[in-house]
Amino acid sequence: MSERVDAPMAEIAVFVAVAQTGSFTRAAEDLGSSKSNVGKAVQRLETRLGTKLFQRTTRAVRLTEDGETYLAAAQDALDGLRDAEQQLAARRSEPAGRVKIDLPAGFGRLLLPSFVGLRERYPKLTLEVALTDRMSDAIGEGWDVVVRIGVLPQDSELTVRKLCDLRLGLYASPDYLQRRGNITSLAELAEHDAVVFRGPTGRLRAWTVRDGTHIRELAPSPVLVLADGQALVEAAIAGFGVTQILDRVALPHVQAGRLVHLLPEADTDGPPVHAIISLGQKMAAKTRAVVNHLADTLQKTAG
């Protein structure tokens, strides 16, 4: 097995400087070093390569044939590194590359169409999106951005940006209300079918409502229990009964006539929405572009 002759980049840079200036003294001045250090760096490189790179006289420093061969390769290598540095610098300033985003299922489907505009604005972005209601490990699973609804645990390894606040409201389909009658008070909810969400903890999620000046919880007897946020919306649209969902999720369906907003005066403040980003060096331009887009989109979808 032949011995490796890899040379430190610093020594290669010194060699190129000497070759370009034709002088150890001028190379040292250009590099902010001493003539002695420059000479020692070239000597170490020649020893490592097992050949002489320069012919030295009292009047001139000239490349040997091996030196000319090595200079061409060294310049190509340094040019490649400079190009890579420029590309990385451009990537930091211009959003480019893959961004992995984890979104809650129902909420994510609300945001998914908006990514068309994001891609039109930043065509060098590639998006990898997961829609799931399970809790993800932002760091362990390699996500760039994880969007979560609700209060978040304190974690020093994460940075969090609040995207918006939500409100909770009661909704049902026009077809259901035509069959079962309109709802004009909270008391009438007891006479109607309820579609209820089962949270990640396994508990049925009570409805939080405003009753005059008081906030209280209702525990309806469900005709359908679902553990998927999007399925909850779809069940309400299909006419299963009344459900409580987030205003941003319900809004496009209300506007399209698929859902009716019941008892708006009973709406309550819902959970906040946060974007979770793994801590590290300065946030990449691609990640910042996605987070800013999510915040802007949610501001525009306010009811």
Rank of each mutant, 00 (worst) to 15 (best):
S136A: 15
T159V: 11
M9I: 15
L204G: 13
L49P: 02
A72F: 01
E217A: 10
D83V: 13
A27F: 06
P95R: 03
E157M: 15
R119F: 02
A250Q: 03
K282G: 10
I237C: 01
E188F: 01
L279N: 11
R148C: 00
E68I: 04
D165P: 00
V223M: 13
T243I: 07
R180W: 07
A74S: 08
G280K: 04
Q86K: 12
V225D: 14
R109W: 11
S93C: 12
A130W: 00
T21S: 11
T132D: 09
A227E: 15
T287A: 02
R167N: 03
P95C: 03
V160M: 12
G97E: 09
L224D: 12
P153A: 07
E141R: 08
D66H: 06
R180M: 13
V18R: 10
Q230R: 10
R98V: 13
V61N: 05
A295F: 01
Q244V: 05
H293S: 05
A172C: 08
L224G: 10
A7I: 13
L63H: 03
P252A: 05
D175K: 14
L298W: 00
A206V: 00
A10E: 15
R161A: 09
I245F: 06
T64R: 04
L177A: 05
L166C: 02
K300L: 14
A89P: 10
T208M: 11
Q87L: 13
A96C: 13
A96Q: 15
P252Q: 04
L251F: 08
A187N: 11
R198K: 15
H261F: 13
E65I: 10
D76G: 04
A256Y: 05
V129H: 04
V147D: 02
A90T: 14
E265F: 07
P113V: 07
D267C: 07
L152F: 12
C164A: 11
T58S: 14
L110T: 06
M283S: 05
L166I: 00
A275V: 09
V14N: 04
A219Q: 08
Q55P: 00
D175M: 12
K100Q: 08
A89C: 11
P200E: 14
L224W: 15
W143A: 12
S278P: 14
R205E: 13
L49G: 02
G199C: 08
A172R: 10
R62M: 06
E68H: 08
L63Q: 04
G67T: 05
R167P: 00
G106W: 05
V129G: 01
A256L: 07
L103M: 01
Y122S: 01
D83R: 14
A60N: 07
A138G: 04
P95A: 04
K286T: 12
L45K: 02
H261M: 13
F197G: 03
A235G: 05
V116Y: 11
K286F: 05
V242H: 10
G22S: 07
H192R: 15
R56M: 01
G270Q: 01
R48Q: 10
A96M: 13
W207C: 03
G199N: 14
V99S: 04
L78N: 05
L88E: 14
R91D: 15
F54G: 11
S2F: 06
K35P: 11
L298I: 00
A74Q: 01
